[in-house]
Amino acid sequence: MALAFTLPDTDGTPTSLHGDGAPAAVVVFTCNHCPYALAWHERIQDVARDYADRGVRVLQINANDAVKHPRDSLAAMQARVAAGEFASPYLHDETQEVARAWGAKTTPDVFVTDASGVVYRGAPDADHGDPSLNAAWLRAALDDVLAGRSVANPETKPVGCSIKWK
Score class of each variant (00 low, 15 high):
Asn62Leu: 03
Ala63Pro: 15
Asp65Leu: 07
Asp65Cys: 03
Val67Met: 10
His69Asn: 13
Pro70Lys: 12
Asp72Asn: 08
Ser73Val: 02
Ser73Arg: 09
Ala75Asn: 08
Ala76Pro: 05
Gln78Ser: 10
Ala79Trp: 07
Arg80Thr: 11
Arg80Ser: 12
Ala83Asn: 12
Ala87Leu: 08
His92Ser: 14
His92Tyr: 14
Glu94Pro: 00
Thr95Tyr: 07
Gln96Pro: 02
Gln96Lys: 04
Glu97Phe: 00
Glu97Ile: 01
Glu97Arg: 12
Glu97Ser: 12
Arg100Pro: 00
Ala101Asn: 09
Trp102Ser: 08
Gly103Trp: 03
Ala104Arg: 00
Thr106Trp: 15
Thr107Lys: 12
Thr107Ile: 10
Pro108Trp: 09
Phe111Arg: 07
Val112Ser: 09
Thr113Trp: 08
Val118Leu: 02
Gly122His: 01
Ala123Tyr: 01
Ala123Asn: 07
Ala126Gln: 07
Ala126Tyr: 06
Gly129Ile: 03
Gly129Asp: 13
Asp130His: 10
Leu133Ala: 06
Asn134Ser: 11
Ala136Glu: 15
Ala141Arg: 07
Ala141Val: 05
Ala141Trp: 10
Asp143Cys: 03
Val145Arg: 08
Leu146Val: 01
Gly148His: 09
Arg149Asp: 14
Val151Ser: 12
Pro154Val: 07
Pro158Ala: 06
Val159Gly: 00
Ile163Trp: 11
Lys164His: 14
Trp165Asp: 15
Trp165Ala: 10
